[in-house]
Each structure stands twice: as structure tokens, then as C-alpha cells.
Design a binder for these strands. Structure first.
Lengths: 317, 317
DNA sequence: TTATTATTTGTAAGTACTTACATAAATACT
DNA sequence: AGTATTTATGTAAGTACTTACAAATAATAA
């Protein structure tokens, strides 16, 4: 049984390549058939030059949807076979202006005839099938230009992960995970400070007994994310100790933790949430922004060396 | 305006390649998304090995529709990344039997999850379009396996050429063309003999006045083919001087000339057509066969050195 | 058993593109 | 006018395959 039938559209790319390769080699056969000393890959460039002489490399590239590098190489090949002549641009000396040579012009009618035959054969071929490949390609290119495969897959996965992530309340048994996840990311970018260790080693004393909360996220049977609320005063809490394991990053787990923390803070009667971070941590900042946090103008001094930005979220209503 | 819209399906190959390239690069993005240290091109091989361990290189290649060389390279890569282990076959020492390594086995569940997500996203993508790309590829592969693009184009062109070829009756003005075309092919394979020159220089005396006929084929304003009937006796004619210019070969012009000659011979009252050729000339022999000629068992001596095969066609009815 | 042929694999080089980088000419900015 | 930036191009190297070739082992014929 064919591998592709089993795996299905997940291997769409591989399958497309296979068809592309057969099409390309069969196209080469067609040129042999007409005894034309011509390679299929020259076609788009040659055709453009024949129809509109005086265009330059970048211009041609844009028209046929390839890179200038590809066109440059093809033009070099065509020139080597005396099918085109290349001149410097008159007004702009950087440009390589391409035109058909005598030999190229002589070849053009035969190539046009051949193209007409190929076109007719291909159209008959397409008419033979129930699902039109040409139109299908067009639609697929459009669909992918609107939203890439990556973001489509990501959307699907995020949806699935959201269902599979469990938010846990902190128990003393979670202390090692709580410490591990935080130390992990701090060491990746900075060094662990004394203030960190106090809170990470004794969360009960330094966070919970002072009126704070700790949230954990479990995914695939493992604790992969943490987040804490530190009580500042009756209506202000600090969002801190936000950490997500690198293997689980990009799954929207930080966002879920953040949202849960905000809900929790509201329940505790908070009117304002505050946090400190570092401008180096781009993904974290964009997460905080997505949660509604905005940069504060005048900041208090921070106990952490690594912090150079402060943000807050006002919980009105 | 897009080049492909203008040129149309003639550039199907180029366009397929463009889509293949975007699909491939977007697939690579998906692997990044999952933090999998994995390249898209490994997928078919890895998947096969995971599902059915103990298969060898050639076996895998056949299953996924690629060459053994491609599989060999991918396996080498996978082994370098410790994702598979390769062992010599037990019974057959030539075989490279592939199985997942521990690291590969650990990766497999994540890859399966990812594949499921991609599959779902792709299926949604395909459902979005009116013309289903997956099915279109399938149909196109089938259509091309039944008849290649080359032979489809050839069939179309032959039809067109048949309309454009004109068969002319010989006039003395044609003698130079008649000689040129024959000398051209004889010199390509053999050397011109005295017997040739007599008939080619004085066709009137050696062919027509002895009751024979000469036919010429004109295509694109030029004489590109010749063929002659030499009278042997009242009911027997020899088909000779069959020549088609190399630039016009493969267009079915020889077949048209042959058919016209047979019709002519019938009109002259022939019951039997005879010809001499050489077994080196494969295309010519297949043409004669297609016209109905069959090899004769006992042959008369030929005046030409180059002839080592004789064929005949009996014109009953 | 030995010689020949076929099978299995690996390696090198080619294909039709791409991205990344380098260089020269043109344009914009002080 | 002189410098910085942008634009146009060419070249090199990479990609995911292919074909072509070479070498080793297995199967078959003599």
C-alpha cells in the first residue's frame, strides 16, 4: 500500500515534490521531442524576454515569481548558449538588460509552437481529472498566503493544549518543581540572586503566609509552569516567579497562568497588579502586554538587579 | 499580472515547484514550533522505521516511493543524530537494517502528536478549497503514469503535422532536394555507393522512365522527406530512397510517405512491395513494420553493400 | 566449485531552485 | 560636495531530491 495513502495529507509536501519531479523530467522529454536545444528551467525567463525585450534581471525575477539569483543564473546560461545578449542599462549602469540574440529570436517561433502544443496537452490532461490541479494549486497558494501552515497548526495545537493543561494550587510537595522551573530560566539569562533563593526555598514563609498565592500548570503529567502573586498591600499584588519550561514554551501556558493569576488577584480584592522584568526578555514582555500590563512611568527601586522595566495592570470594575 | 496566469498550464511544472518550495519551508516552521530536532525530509523514512522496525534501506525506499540513494542519505543523517541504529542484515550481509534508537523511540510520540496536528490542519486547509489539491495530485500521478506528458504532446503534434504536411509529385526541379535528403542519411550511417549516385543524379532515367514513382513531403515550406517506388516487374515494386530530414524526424512524416507509396503502388497494379534495409536502422525497421512489411526468409542478392535485411508486403485484395 | 549475473547499498555529482553574502552603482541626506 | 543608505546584481553554498557509478555480497548457471 502506498505510503502517502496511509499518512495522508501530512505528507503533502513530500508528495508535491514527487509530482514536481515527474513533471519536470517529462517536460524535459518534450523538449527532446522537438529537438530544441533548450532546458525547461529557461522557459519563464526566455519567454518574458521574448515578449518584452529590454527588461532587466530584477524586473524579470519579479514577473516570474523567482529570485533575482535564479534569473541571474538562467540568464548566464542562456547567454552562454547564445540565446540572449546582456547589456548594461543605459540610464542605470547596475542593470543587466536582457534581449534575445539572433539565435534566440530564430528559436522563438518553434518554442511558441511547442508551448502551444504543451498547453493544449496539459489542458486536455487537466480536463481528464475530476479535481483540477491547476486551480487547486492556485487556491492553495492563496490559502497559504493568507495564513501559513505553521500558524494554522499552532492554532490547532493551542486549542488542544488549553484543554490538556491543568492549573494546580500549590502544596508543599510542589516546592522542588517551583524552584527548578524558576532557577532554570533565571540561569539561562542572568544569575540567581539571594532574594530569589529565599522565596524559592521557602515559598510558604515568604509568599503564602504573607497573603500571596502560587499557581502551577501541569501538562502531560509534568509541572511545566509556575506563577506567584506577592501581596504588596491590601489592594496591590505583584505578579512574579512566572516561569514556563522551555519544552512547553509557545503553547500559551504562560497566558493561561497569567489569566488565572489575574482572576485570583481580583478574588483577593486587588485593584492593581504590578510586575518587574527585563527588556531583554522579549517574549515575556509581549506576554505581559497581551495580558493587559502596561509600562509604568516612575518606578520604585527593585530588590532584583536584573529588573529594568516595571509594568502594571489596573483592575477597575 | 502573474506570469503563470498568462502562460497557463504550460508552466505547470514551474508552478508546482513554487508551491512545493513554500510547502517545504512552511513544514520546517512547524517542526520549529514543536521544538523537535527534526527535519521534514526525514519524516517518511522515520515514520516507516517507527511503524515497522527491521526494514532495510531498499525496502523503505520502495515503500515511500523514493530512491534507495535518498533513503541511504536520510538514514545516515538520522544515525548521525542518534535517532536510528543501523545493523547489517542477519541473513543477508548486504542489507542495512534500520531500527529506532532509544532517543528516536522517545521522540516518536511527540512526532505522532505533531503529525496528527498537521494532518488536521492540512485537512482543514484542503476543505477550504474548491479544488482538492491532494486528490488532484493523485489523479495527475495516475494520468501521467498511464500516458506521459511527452507522448500526449507528441500525439497532438503529430495530428497537427499531418494536416500541415503536403505530399508532392516529383518534378525535375526536385532533383537537388531528392539527392540531398538521401545523401544526408546515407552518409550519417554508411558511405554513398555508385548505385546510389546513378538513381539520385538521374532519377528521371533510372526511376520514372522505368515505370517507377517518386514522392516528396513538404513541411513548413521545405521538402523534408522523399520516397520512391522502383518497378521490378508488372506486379512487384521496390520501396526505396526513403529519407526524412533529421529536423523533421519523429513527426510521422515517414509513415505518411510510406502509406502514400503503398496507395500509389496499388494504383499501379502492384501485388507485392519489397524493400532492403539494414538491421542497424532500428527506427526505419519499426516504421516498415508499422506499414505492414515483414521480413522475407530467402533473399535475393542486393546491389547495395549496406543492405542485410529484406522485407516485403503482399497487397492482397 | 567456479564464473557469471543480479541485488543491495553507499557515494558523487547534478538539478532547479533557494538563502546569504559581497560588490558596485544610484540616490538621499547633511 | 561628501557620506550614508538603498538598489541591482552576481557568486557561493545549501536543499531535497535525482541519476550514475562503484563496490560488496548473494544467487544462479556451467
Amino acid at each position: 500500500m502506498d505510503f502517502f495513502d496511509e499518512v495522508g495529507p501530512a505528507a503533502l509536501g513530500s508528495r508535491l515534490r514527487r509530482l514536481t519531479d515527474t513533471m519536470t523530467s517529462q517536460a524535459a522529454e518534450v523538449y527532446d521531442l522537438y529537438h530544441l536545444p533548450f532546458e525547461p528551467r529557461w522557459f519563464p525567463v526566455f519567454c518574458t524576454v521574448a515578449q518584452e525585450p529590454g527588461r532587466h534581471v530584477g524586473d524579470i525575477a519579479e514577473r516570474i515569481g523567482q529570485t533575482h539569483a535564479a534569473v541571474s543564473q538562467v540568464v548566464k546560461d542562456l547567454a552562454k548558449h547564445d540565446l540572449v545578449v546582456v547589456q548594461r542599462g543605459e540610464a542605470d549602469q547596475r542593470r543587466s538588460v536582457v534581449a534575445l540574440s539572433e539565435k534566440g529570436a530564430a528559436l522563438w517561433p518553434a518554442l511558441q509552437q511547442q508551448t502551444a502544443d504543451v498547453r493544449q496537452a496539459t489542458e486536455a490532461l487537466l480536463a481528464e481529472t475530476r479535481h483540477n490541479l491547476w486551480l487547486a494549486i492556485e487556491e492553495m497558494e492563496y490559502a497559504l498566503s493568507r495564513q501559513s501552515l505553521g500558524s494554522r497548526v499552532k492554532a490547532l495545537r493551542d486549542e488542544r493544549v488549553t484543554d490538556e493543561v491543568r492549573l494546580l494550587d500549590y502544596t508543599p510537595a510542589h516546592q522542588p518543581d517551583f524552584k527548578r522551573l524558576n532557577v532554570e530560566w533565571i540561569e539561562r539569562y542572568f544569575r540567581v540572586e539571594a532574594a530569589d533563593l529565599k522565596a524559592l526555598d521557602y515559598p510558604d514563609e515568604y509568599i503564602l503566609q504573607r497573603g500571596g498565592r502560587i499557581l502551577l500548570a501541569e501538562y502531560g503529567g509534568q509541572v511545566v509552569g509556575t506563577c506567584a502573586l506577592l501581596k504588596m498591600d491590601d489592594t496591590s499584588y505583584e505578579l512574579a516567579k512566572m516561569a514556563v519550561s522551555p519544552t512547553a514554551q509557545g503553547l500559551g501556558i504562560g497566558f493561561q497562568l497569567g489569566q488565572a493569576a489575574i482572576t485570583q488577584a481580583r478574588a483577593l480584592g486587588a485593584r492593581r497588579l504590578y510586575l518587574e522584568s527585563n527588556t531583554k526578555l522579549k517574549p515575556a514582555l509581549s506576554l505581559y502586554h497581551k495580558l493587559g500590563f502596561r509600562k509604568t512611568v516612575a518606578g520604585q527601586p527593585s530588590p532584583y538587579e536584573r529588573c529594568n522595566i516595571q509594568m502594571e495592570l489596573l483592575l477597575t470594575s
